[in-house]
């Protein structure tokens, strides 16, 4: 497929997708308690963007999604943005040579990336003085978040692919609108 140029329109659509994820996370996901934990859908944005377009867009999508949800969380401001950014980069780099047409590949990537992101969040939080982040049942939390995100990964990938324009299976080449 042909590499696509990132346009202002696709950026706008990405912002819309992030807004949609924020609303769904804050109104629906927080109420779904599984073993005491709720899903963390915002992680799907950098994961899907990283898979669809590569590390650069993954980082941007992760930063946007993270900073948006950070505005509403009582946790340190910017922490989710940092974790989202790093997750997007990691997923983009790690999946560069993977075949993403196979359905279970995005699910597996989402499973691993979500687990890694949750653990990174807890550790970075503790480094920033929030030692209580390590007091939660991290194994249970990782399991819930990773499994839910794995199930929802194909759908999230479709939404993000719509946002970032056609040619979603191809890494974006150049021409950043930002």
């Amino acid at each position: 497929m042909e590499p696509v140029t990132v346009t202002a329109r696709s950026r706008f659509r990405l912002v819309l997708v992030v807004a949609l994820f924020v609303v769904v996370q804050e109104t629906v996901a927080v109420k779904l308690r599984i073993a005491g934990f709720h899903p963390e859908l915002m992680l799907l944005v950098p994961i899907a963007a990283g898979m669809v377009t590569g590390p650069r867009e993954g980082a941007i999508a992760g930063f946007l999604a993270g900073i948006a949800i950070d505005l509403l969380l009582p946790t340190p401001f910017g922490l989710t943005a940092l974790v989202g950014c790093l997750t997007g980069v990691a997923v983009g780099r790690a999946t560069g040579s993977l075949t993403r047409e196979v359905r279970w590949v995005p699910m597996l990537v989402a499973l691993a990336a979500s687990a890694g992101a949750v653990m990174l969040y807890a550790v970075l939080g503790a480094v920033l003085g929030q030692e209580q982040f390590l007091r939660v049942n991290l194994a249970g939390l990782v399991l819930v978040v990773a499994l839910v995100n794995a199930v929802l990964a194909p759908a999230a990938q479709r939404v993000v692919r719509w946002a970032l324009g056609p040619g979603g299976e191809t890494r974006l080449a150049s021409g950043s609108a930002w």
Partner: peptide
Amino acid sequence: MLILVLLSLSVITLDQSGRTHHLTSGI
């Protein structure tokens, strides 16, 4: 990518600093 990571770290620093916490809190 590095810029975004640095930006995130800057935001965290602003939030954690006692002098600038009111800024992030206000936002």
